[in-house]
Amino acid sequence: MENGTQNKLISVIVPVYNVESFLDQCVTSIINQTYSNFELILVDDGSKDSSGAICDEWYKKDSRIKVIHQSNGGLSAARNSGLDQAKGDYVCFIDSDDFVKENYLEAFMITMSKTDADIAICDIISAKLAEPEKPLDSVIQFTAKECRAWLTNPIAREYVLMVVSWNKMYKRELFNELRFEKGKLHEDEFMINKLLRMVNKVTFVPVKSYVYRNNEESITGKNNNNDIRHLHGIDAYVERIKSALEDEDDDKEFAAITLKWALLKLADFYRNGNPSMQNAVKKKYDAIFNEYQWLLTDKQRLKYKVFTVTPGLFCKKFVKF
């Protein structure tokens, strides 16, 4: 790598909450990076286990590590605290129950120096992620609008790669004024909406250097299926619809696809939810359908209307994922 590139500082932000079983592996994977010019900001978000103490032990071992202890405010608040302290030219987020390959940062830096991308994206290793719709075996350059092509199917691998915050490197300047929305679940869904309004160039690199761990104890795990805050993700879909319609291109096709997925995802929450979740779903479904049904064809409108009358029948007939 060129000397100028090696001088670039990366801020690696790791939110930490009750992950004592995973934290050492996560931090070790970062400390052992082939690219060494980084600061690691561990944000202990009010952990109730030994995670905070583990952070402090790591602080003693490596001068590149900073530790922030704060009252529990959630993932967004923890990432925001890290951003407030970040001094790097670039920023990465790594979840504390995951880990990365040793060339994670170096591969990003090479990509950034060659393409001058605002955001670089890597592929990930995950046991629960679907195979790609097309082979992901080459570097891909996206404009902000082209990124939308990977946001049209939320059960596809490409969607996950585009929407999550933790498989990416960002130019630090993107976050000069931008922060994660506090109190939101699925905060990454909101963040990608904001980022795609700001960026000019996004680069995907087909290297699986981020290892995602399926932690069912996390807030998005199956153990928390009936948390009403899961519906925040649907609010992000609605935000995406509005943004597409406000665009200069007035992208009704993308808005219509996003609407259909919002309604299908709501139906899935209904199918798997308890009575409280089902009541919340019905209210949100009715509101979204009534506001945006004009985006649908007559045939589609009749199809999605079925849920408002007999949700159980709709789920049985149309929710196949």
Results as ranks from 00 to 15, higher is better:
319 V>Y: 03
281 V>F: 05
11 S>R: 06
182 K>W: 00
168 K>D: 07
107 A>K: 15
288 I>N: 04
161 L>T: 12
143 T>C: 04
4 G>Q: 13
314 F>K: 12
217 E>H: 09
197 R>N: 14
25 Q>C: 08
20 E>P: 00
211 V>T: 13
289 F>W: 07
134 K>H: 12
247 D>G: 06
88 G>V: 11
166 W>T: 14
71 S>R: 09
233 G>K: 03
174 L>V: 08
16 V>M: 04
308 T>R: 13
82 G>H: 11
209 S>M: 03
167 N>C: 14
125 I>P: 00
78 A>D: 08
205 V>D: 04
145 K>M: 12
200 N>L: 01
131 E>H: 11
6 Q>G: 05
277 M>S: 04
155 I>H: 08
36 S>A: 14
198 M>Q: 15
223 N>L: 13
119 I>K: 01
319 V>R: 07
314 F>T: 15
94 I>C: 11
50 S>Y: 01
93 F>M: 09
293 Q>W: 00
237 Y>R: 12
210 Y>T: 10
129 L>A: 11
166 W>L: 01
22 F>G: 10
81 S>W: 05
220 T>Y: 05
52 G>V: 02
220 T>Q: 05
253 E>L: 04
166 W>R: 10
68 I>M: 08
65 I>L: 12
189 E>V: 05
247 D>K: 10
162 M>L: 02
250 D>Y: 13
235 D>V: 03
132 P>W: 08
48 K>L: 12
226 N>S: 08
191 M>W: 03
217 E>I: 03
232 H>G: 05
248 E>S: 12
236 A>V: 07
240 R>G: 11
53 A>G: 02
148 R>I: 11
257 I>E: 11
185 L>H: 11
61 K>V: 09
41 I>Q: 02
68 I>Y: 03
305 K>V: 00
57 E>L: 09
286 D>C: 01
229 R>D: 08
216 E>D: 14
103 N>G: 01
15 P>M: 02
114 K>P: 00
313 L>Y: 15
176 N>T: 15
70 Q>M: 14
84 D>T: 14
208 K>D: 07
318 F>Y: 15
53 A>L: 06
93 F>I: 05
62 D>R: 11
9 L>K: 15
174 L>G: 10
105 L>Q: 07
293 Q>P: 00
91 V>W: 06
293 Q>L: 00
109 M>V: 06
288 I>G: 10
15 P>A: 07
269 F>Y: 15
65 I>E: 08
241 I>L: 07
55 C>P: 04
59 Y>Q: 11
202 V>R: 05
25 Q>T: 15
190 F>R: 02
23 L>G: 07
69 H>Y: 02
